[in-house]
Amino acid sequence: MTAADGHSRLLYWAGVALGPIAWGINLQGVYVLAHFSCEQIRISGAIMSAALAIVALAGTVISARAVRRGAGAEWADARGGGPRTFMAWLGVGSGVLFALVIANQFAASLMISPCLR
């Protein structure tokens, strides 16, 4: 396995990894910032949620580009290339799903007061 081959395999996993990581950071960040948001109004949670939704969507775009770039390689690869394409499509779906989850949490944090404990 060459370095370029290892790098291209990471592209297939980008959406699978970046979406859940961004969601986990967003979830914990919203809980941490809730205490401070109650004392004074801050938009740092909104900025964080928007940035992490963009990170999740970036993983989706990277996985989608890996699918498009590797479509012709399926026929040239002796092993088929099916598992890599499957993981890339799973990354596309996972990235979109987690971006939507982050957007829903962002909407909930805008509508519900953090002081309601």
Rank of each mutant, 00 (worst) to 15 (best):
H35I: 13
A14D: 00
Y12R: 10
L11F: 06
L11A: 14
R84T: 09
V30H: 02
T60G: 03
P20K: 02
L27Y: 07
G6M: 12
Q40I: 15
A58T: 05
W89Q: 07
P114W: 05
A51K: 03
A107T: 14
A88N: 10
A108E: 07
C115Y: 10
S113M: 13
I62W: 03
G24N: 08
G6N: 15
H7Q: 14
M111P: 10
V67H: 03
P20W: 02
V101H: 04
R117S: 13
L33E: 07
A108C: 04
L10I: 02
V96M: 03
F98G: 01
E39S: 09
P114C: 05
L10M: 07
M87C: 08
F86M: 08
A76F: 13
V55L: 05
C115P: 08
L100M: 15
W13N: 04
I41N: 08
I25A: 08
S49H: 00
M1E: 10
S109K: 09
C38M: 04
I25D: 01
A53V: 02
A14Y: 00
I54K: 05
W23A: 03
G72D: 14
A107C: 14
A14W: 01
A58H: 01
I25T: 07
N26H: 02
A108P: 06
W23G: 00
A73F: 12
G15S: 06
N104C: 07
S63K: 03
A4V: 13
S113R: 12
Y12F: 13
S63N: 07
I112D: 09
H7S: 14
I25L: 11
L57Y: 01
Y31N: 08
W89F: 09
A88H: 11
A73P: 05
T85G: 08
G45P: 05
G91S: 07
L90Y: 02
S37P: 06
A51R: 04
A103P: 05
W75L: 10
S37Q: 10
A76M: 15
Q28N: 09
M1R: 12
G19Y: 00
I62C: 04
D5F: 15
C38K: 10
L57G: 03
G15T: 03
R79H: 12
E39R: 09
S63A: 08
I102D: 00
G95L: 08
V16R: 01
F98V: 01
A14T: 02
L52S: 01
A51L: 06
I47S: 06
R69N: 07
G15F: 02
N26V: 03
E74G: 09
M111K: 15
I21L: 15
A107G: 08
A71V: 11
R117V: 09
S113C: 06
L90G: 08
A46E: 15
G29K: 04
L116F: 14
D5V: 15
A103L: 11
W89I: 06
A17S: 10
W89G: 03
V30T: 12
L10H: 02
G29S: 04
W13G: 00
G59T: 00
M48K: 02
G24P: 06
L11E: 12
L97C: 07
Y31A: 09
T2L: 11
Q28K: 09
V55E: 00
G81N: 09
G45A: 09
S63C: 09
T85F: 13
A108D: 07
G80A: 05
N26I: 00
R79F: 14
A64M: 11
S8F: 11
